[in-house]
Every structure is written in structure tokens, then in C-alpha cells.
Design a binder for these strands. Structure first.
Lengths: 329, 329
DNA sequence: AGGCAGGATTGGATCGTTCAAGTTTCTGGA
DNA sequence: TCCAGAAACTTGAACGATCCAATCCTGCCT
């Protein structure tokens, strides 16, 4: 068994001091070209890799980013997180960071986990997926000057932190516009109860687009918790009450329910969902697609910006969704 | 800003030496009850947490487990990995380990990543999801005595390493038996091309169950790559060729395709999928459900067994799937 | 009272890296 | 040729935990 290769091994091999090797790695410009080459050759020849634990001990930085993996709630939207995490891992990797997973069942436990991760692993930053009004997590992190980014904008105007989000209103607006262009006028909306930032945003895109087109949206929308059964129930209600020719939904779950409601009653009704989940792709549901890979990449960008220098809060990023056209609209 | 709490701070506060604090943490039984209590009180009062980097430097162990997050291929089966990862994170957490993510586009790059992760982060172990015949990854890890577990059994009989798997044959057998009990006799199977361990296993469960029931399975099965379109195509073919009254599929994607094929032709045909993905739940598809949380937990069990003592290779674990009954069968 | 065994406690060394300060080498101008 | 000043490189110390070996108690026996 070959002995462990440390910075001292490399130094001896290249006939320089440890510090010079360290400089080649961390500040190449201050080392003479010729020396640098010799050190780099030694590094390659020996297969040396800087020990992260030792580096961390001195610098206090772990090059680790924490992300939460949630229990897939209804299952359908779970894959959104999945794709986001994949993008995050990929981009973080390229920037020299690694992603560490954690779970927590509620906000309180999640905050306790923050303390644990920061204390024992000295995590460099957190990525929070999903935010709500008065989120205690962002408050806690901000109070302690822990770098973090949220995927999802802060719905309380007051706290300003770096965030990346997808413009939900633009997504539903795009969906609504497409339906208008196809000649629809009675375009309904099935969304979430008033008060959730994301839900209100998505409804606004639909409402404003109808207004702009001179269509009165009154009575054309319904609210419920997320779920297939809920979507089906509300769609039946809408069919009876206002007989819409199309419907835009705040999620693929709701849209799937709506599809089941129209089947057998009036299959000509157009349906558009939100999130472009695998389920949508599977059943041919047209859906608003979020650029998750891009979102993840921008999260990493913001974080590395904060971590590697910039002291000022970077500007937030609002990405535009696109419409994945299939045969339901 | 309060200064950093180290083991020395705790020692001073509890009026003992650093070593005693360390003993309370790592070998509580050798410390007198009264002293231990005093130290624990100090730890809680100060909110002390052992610095992982420093510990790792001395012990050479990171308490980090690596898991790969794949780009969700067709999207449908992606959530299987998602749920597995969640379980892994939860169980690892309870055992004092954390999960680090990595990605790689092919085997060669994945192996390069192993070297990197081992060299810089001194990872304790790897969890590999999915294995194939002659997998170069397991070979590489085994050659270097790196602890690892695979979720998916080794299909080459030769190499023996700890693994956890779900009995696919038992799953399809259960599905087939249910269909037989319901009176079906012409039970078809849509699976993957011969040569993939998982696919052959799932087909065997169907075939053997039919044999045992005295039904000849000849001509009742079809093979293709995974995908909804492929499933639909083969189901149409089966309907024309042998007019089955039920079909068992190797995946939910294939099953979904099959469902689309029978719709309008003969909706009375029963369909059973595999993996119990969100899509199955959404469309009411009966599907074989893998105990993913349990599988993840057993993976962690095996790893901690190897890491915390046991030098002998632990015995593999084969879990039994269950049937998630919905209205397609 | 003295001695002894055994466990509990202590100080010093160590892991591999980077920081801070020191020393040598090089460069160019008088 | 000499020297100032910069550039290049070297040395010692520190990060915070654990391991090791030495010392200190404590209770018990003679």
C-alpha cells in the first residue's frame, strides 16, 4: 500500500517547500513559471489531491452546499425537486462545490438541522427550495449571516436575500394567451387558496391576460388544495356552472383531475397544467415548463458570487417559463 | 459575536481536560457518571458541536456517504431514485452520516469522480443505484477496498459485495397470481430486451407463475426498450396477435403505453405496471410497489456494519415488493 | 499508616493545510 | 561594484479534534 500523498510529498518531489506547492494551487500567479511547472508535474505524477478536511480546518470553508430533499408529497411534483437537485449538483461541481443532503419534517427541526450542519460541517451555504410568507428559515439564516439562496422569491417584501425564481404569472399568461389565440373565450382557472405567494402569482397571470383581452374573468375561477381528486371535483363544478371551453391549472395534479372530469362529458375542453412533470408528458398534457436546470445554475452563480468575494447582495433572478405543447391544448 | 466554541471551551467550562470531554463524546463509559454529567451540561450550555474537519483529520473518517443523482431519464422512473435518496438521507442521518451527491455522465467519468471524492473528501462509502452485468464501478471500488453497497444485486455471480435489492420476480409473480385469481388465463407480458438483469428477473416471475398454473406463456410476451410509445406499440401488437385479457409490464412507462393501446379497443383488459410511480397513482394504474424507504434503510445498515467494525462481508438483503391495487386490475 | 492496583485525568504530539513573517535571490540604477 | 527594492521562496505556527503515554486520585487491603 502506497503511503498517503500530502503536500509535503509533492514538495519533496518537486524540491520546493510546502508553501510553494500551496501557492501553485491557490495563487499560481506569484510562483515563477518554471517552478510552477515542476510542481504541477509532481502533482500529476503522484496523483496528489488537496485534503479538504485540512484545508477546511485552516480556512474555515468546507466547499459544501446543503440542499433539502423533501419527502415527495403527492408524488407528482416530487420530480421537480429531483431535476432541480440534479442541476444543482452538476453546476456546483463545476464551481468546485459539493451538495450535501438533509431532511427535516418541519421548520423547527429544519432550523435545528441548520445549526447542526453549520456547527459540525461548517457548511458554506444553503439552498432553500420553496418559500412562504413569513418564512422563519430565511429569517434565521439571515440573522446569522449564513449565505443562502432560495429557489422561490421572498413573498414578504421586507427581507432581501438572493433568490432565483420562475415567473409563474408569465407562465399562466402564456398559457392563457395561447388559448385566446386558439379562439377560446371562456377560459377558466383552477388554483390554490388565496394567500400562497406562488398560487396568487399564477392566478394573476391568467386574470391579467383575460382582462387585457377584454374578457371578464369573474366566476371563472376556483380554489382548492392541491390534488387530483380536488381538481376533478372543481372541474365538474365549473362545467356545470359556467361551461368553460378551456381551463388553466396551477399544477399538473389539478390539471390531471380536470382532464378526468372532462373525459366523457366534453373531451373538446382544452386543459393546460403547470410544472411539466413526467405525468404531464405521459398523458400528453400541455403544461407550463420551468427551466429547472437553468434555475439551479443561477442559484449556484449567486452563491459563488457571495462566497467568493462580492460583499453586496447580488440581484435576484427571474426566469421565464415556456409552454410544453402536447395534445390537450 | 460570540467566539467559537471548541472542545477546550467546554473543558474549561466544565473544569476538566480536553481529553475528558473527548471521552464523554467517544467513549462515555470510561468517564465517571458525575463528571460526564458536568461535561454534558457544559456542552448543552455552550451549544458545542464537535468540528468534523478536525475530527476527520485525526481519524481519517468523514462520516460522509456518496450517492449519485442521475438525470431523470424518461422522467417517470426518476421519482424512484428520488424516494430512495430521501430514505437514504433520513436513515444515514440517524446513524450519524450525511449524504453527498455527485453526478457523472458515464462509467469512466463516474470512476474518476470516485477518485476525486475519496482523495479530497475522504468519503467513507458509496451507494450505487442500479447495477449491470460486468459493472466496472463495483470492480474499481472493490479493488481499492472502498466500502460500498449497491441497490440492485450483482448480476455477475462472481463478485460478492454487500447489496440490497427488491425481488422483481416475486413482484411480477404476485401481479400474475392476482390476475390468475381474477380468472384471467391469457396474461401477456411486456418487458425489456433479454440481457438486462432486472428485466429478465421480472419476466421470470411472470413466466414461472403461469407455468405453475399450467398456462403456456409461449407467444404471450414482447420485448422493447423502455418508454410509453414502445409500450403502446407492443400492446397493439399483442391485442391483434393473441388478444390477451390482461398484461403485466416491466415498468409503469410500458404499462401506461399499454393502457393507451387498450383504450377504445377493449377497456376490459387488465394492466399492471411496475414501480408504483406517481404516474401510476395519478392514472389509477395497479402497480408493483418497491419498499424504497426500507431498501434505503437496509443500505445504510449494511454500510454502518462495514464501517463500524464488522470485517466480514454482511449478507445481502432481498426485499419483497407489494401490489398497489388500483382500478386497472 | 503505608502500599498498591486500577481507573480517571492530564499534557504533549499529531493529522495536512494555509497564514504570517522571515530569508534568499534577482533586477536595475547609480 | 554596490545597494535598494521587489520578487520568489522557506520556515514556524496555528486551526480543533484524537491518540498516546504519563501522572494523579481513590478505595482497599495488609
Amino acid at each position: 500500500m502506497a503511503e498517503k500523498v500530502t503536500i509535503a510529498t509533492v514538495a519533496r518531489h518537486a524540491r520546493v517547500s510546502r508553501q510553494t506547492v500551496s501557492n501553485v494551487l491557490n495563487a499560481p500567479h506569484i510562483v515563477r513559471q518554471e517552478t510552477r511547472q515542476r510542481v504541477e508535474d509532481a502533482i500529476n505524477a503522484l496523483g496528489y489531491r488537496a485534503n479538504q478536511a485540512a484545508r477546511q480546518m485552516r480556512t474555515g470553508r468546507s466547499r459544501l452546499i446543503a440542499a433539502r430533499i423533501e419527502p415527495t408529497r403527492d408524488g407528482i411534483n416530487g420530480s421537480v425537486l429531483d431535476r432541480f437537485l440534479h442541476g444543482l449538483t452538476e453546476t456546483a461541481d463545476a464551481a468546485g462545490y459539493r451538495v450535501l443532503l438533509y431532511t427535516a419534517t418541519d421548520d423547527e427541526r429544519e432550523i435545528a438541522t441548520y445549526g447542526d450542519l453549520l456547527g459540525t460541517y461548517e457548511l458554506d451555504a444553503f439552498v432553500l427550495v420553496g418559500t412562504k410568507y413569513g418564512d422563519p428559515r430565511t429569517q434565521w439564516l439571515a440573522d446569522r449571516d449564513v449565505p443562502f439562496v432560495t429557489f422561490g422569491r421572498p413573498w414578504d417584501a421586507l427581507d432581501a436575500h438572493p433568490w432565483v425564481d420562475v415567473d409563474g404569472a408569465a407562465g399562466t399568461a402564456q398559457a392563457t394567451r395561447r388559448l385566446l389565440d386558439a379562439g377560446h373565450r371562456r377560459i377558466a382557472f383552477i388554483g390554490w387558496p388565496v394567500g400562497s405567494g406562488v398560487g396568487d402569482d399564477r392566478r394573476a397571470g391568467w386574470r391579467d391576460t383575460l382582462h387585457a383581452a377584454g374578457v371578464d374573468p369573474t366566476g371563472l375561477h376556483r380554489e382548492t388544495e392541491d390534488g387530483i381528486a380536488e381538481g376533478e371535483r372543481l372541474m365538474r363544478d365549473l362545467l356545470v356552472a359556467v361551461a368553460p371551453s378551456a381551463v388553466v391549472c396551477a399544477s399538473d395534479s389539478l390539471a390531471l383531475g380536470a382532464l378526468q372530469a372532462i373525459r366523457g362529458v366534453d373531451p373538446s375542453v382544452s386543459v393546460i397544467g403547470f410544472d411539466d412533470t413526467p405525468v404531464a408528458a405521459a398523458v400528453g398534457l400541455t403544461s407550463v415548463s420551468q427551466p429547472l436546470g437553468e434555475a439551479a445554475a443561477r442559484c449556484v452563480d449567486l452563491l459563488t458570487g457571495v462566497l467568493d468575494g462580492d460583499h453586496e447582495t447580488p440581484s435576484p433572478v427571474l426566469l421565464q417559463p415556456s409552454l410544453a405543447l402536447r395534445h390537450t391544448a
